[in-house]
Design a protein around this nucleic acid. Structure first.
Lengths: 228, 228
DNA sequence: CCAATCGCTTGATCTGAATCAACGTAACCG
DNA sequence: CGGTTACGTTGATTCAGATCAAGCGATTGG
């Protein structure tokens, strides 16, 4: 791992408060691995043996049941998965698949649990991280139960807007799954938002009128202020 | 509070490992209050001042947005809410409303945080509790994104079955909101499940053929094995 | 005891989303 | 370079669920 990447990880809320020695141990007991795109890193129902830290690339959290599949979220540098499964020593509830060539730091679950026991500051950080993950999931659930497809898309766009535009970092089919709709309906949702003066140019979306989009999206800090 | 209730709380995963003195302090700093049915205990967007423990009765966790409202869950003795908001010292993302006459132990957020700092065993328990809450919410999200209304109802029935029957503890309209549908569609979902030999008698539902119901419900430990 | 209300159910209709199918385009590969 | 494949879009249709409306039965309150 490059030193600046170790530094990046060190500054994460999850790691920044723990003692130097403990942080070093976590890195030493971990493995940094490269993966090609489309590779399944963890499977649903497998025991949680590692805490994964995305150092480079992007990972998709997916879940399948009875022939259906959906995307629960994306993890980008320097996000982690899945702390909750590691802590409770249970199986994963979600699978993880690389969306691009990625480099992943894999920290053995036992190392995480050992460090937690040894370092109160780390334990505190773990607690805060879990609380945040819980709140983010509650927001996602609210979004799913209280909004329709076009509204979810509009809010996603608002959240990812930079300088009046959004560059969709994944295939649109993947974004569709993330937003809980089919690719066809994502296309139509984009068309619907044309009325709010958005313009789709391949993976790039121009938001010509943020106000109009917000009027339709009705963003709320209680649903959209994810910490990630 | 009756001694046997304090004992019940003491045996909860969240409290059973902390030192006697700390547990006593938590109880002493808390208030035990009675509330009539339909009373709003906490509001969305309010600062999280208390950790609530349901000692008697039942509470509904609800959330509203843009004129829509939905139920995220029920809390029965001796469940708690909302640990995550208390820990991160943030606002509530959900409101809580009594469904029946209830008695609630309200522990000041500061007391929870103090005890956490002082008692590693309690901190560990908090972490585990949060991890569990997170996993339950992920399961709920999966249920919502991967299943249709009838399937969600079928699984809810299977989960609450006792001796071949389910006694619905709330109004059906409330159950409908909990399952993410309208009261009208809940009625129709019950009708649909008639094909699996269920029989609805007011608040009581008889499951004459668990096998048939499971065939439709397709229950999975990765969605339905909630710890609560 | 009767009237009013409320919760639930059922039917009719409408809307949003999924599905099925076709097509254009861009990327990939032999 | 040409053919193939994959992705995205669009249209037509179907389906699930929401909405609107009406009616029934039980409970409540005057």
């Amino acid at each position: 791992m490059r030193p600046e990447e170790a530094d990046e990880i060190r500054t994460l809320p999850l790691f920044r408060d723990c003692a130097d020695a403990h942080f070093t141990t976590l890195l030493e007991r971990g493995f940094l691995q490269r993966f090609p795109p489309g590779l399944v890193l963890i499977h649903e129902d497998d025991p949680a043996d590692f805490l994964h830290v995305v150092v480079e690339g992007m990972v998709e959290m997916v879940t399948s049941h009875a022939g259906r599949e959906t995307t629960l979220g994306f993890v980008r540098p320097f996000g982690t998965f899945i702390l909750a499964a590691v802590l409770t020593d249970q199986v994963y509830l979600q699978a993880a698949r690389t969306l691009e060539k990625s480099r992943i730091l894999m920290v053995p679950a036992a190392a995480v649990r050992d460090t937690m026991r040894a370092d109160p500051a780390f334990m505190t950080a773990v607690t805060r991280e879990l609380a945040t993950a819980y709140r983010d999931t509650v927001m996602e659930l609210k979004s799913q139960k209280l909004r329709n497809g076009a509204e979810r898309l509009a809010n996603w766009l608002l959240r990812h807007e930079r300088d009046g535009a959004v560059l969709i970092p994944v295939e649109k089919r993947t974004l569709a799954a993330r937003l809980g709709m089919t690719p066809e309906n994502l296309s139509r949702a984009f068309a619907t938002l044309g009325a709010c003066n958005i313009e789709v140019q391949g993976p790039k979306v121009l938001l010509h009128d943020r106000g109009a989009l917000e009027k339709l999206a009705k963003p709320s800090p209680l649903i959209d202020d994810v910490s990630t």
